[in-house]
Design a protein around this nucleic acid. Structure first.
Length: 109
DNA sequence: ACGATGACTCTTC
DNA sequence: GGAAGAGCCATCG
């Protein structure tokens, strides 16, 4: 067993993301106090399988609003986001800037 | 311990 | 907005 404290933090933030909204890896990393841990956040997503509770990792995208990740998996995530009302084009969020949700803004508010 | 890799982000062209 | 290069840290062989 590894120390997944950081991962749990990421998963927790992901669950705090309201429906129909998305956030970026950097935003989560920043809230955790590690603005440069964007890659680790992605790692945490890959480790989401370790989470005892389901994690809406599909609500997490990169700074460009593109559904980064494993090929095929992104396609599945796109469907989930569309179900929430998020418009996606070519694996990219249309109104990304509009539906973007900053966790730190809500947490520290 | 080292090198390579990765679901990233930033700056610059 | 897209492409290229550099920086970032943890995990894996």
């Amino acid at each position: 067993m590894k120390d997944e404290s950081f991962f749990e933090h990421v998963w927790e933030v992901c669950r705090q993301i309201p429906p129909g909204r998305v956030t970026s890896y950097g935003a989560i990393a920043k809230v955790l106090g590690k603005p440069n841990w964007s890659r680790m956040v992605g790692y945490a997503m890959g480790a989401c399988g370790r989470a005892t509770e389901p994690v809406p990792f599909y609500r997490v995208v990169n700074s460009s609003g593109q559904l980064t990740g494993h090929e095929g998996a992104a396609d599945r995530r796109q469907k989930f986001l569309e179900e929430e009302g998020v418009e996606i084009v070519n694996h990219k969020i249309k109104n990304f800037k509009k539906i973007f949700w900053d966790p730190g803004k809500e947490l520290e508010y």
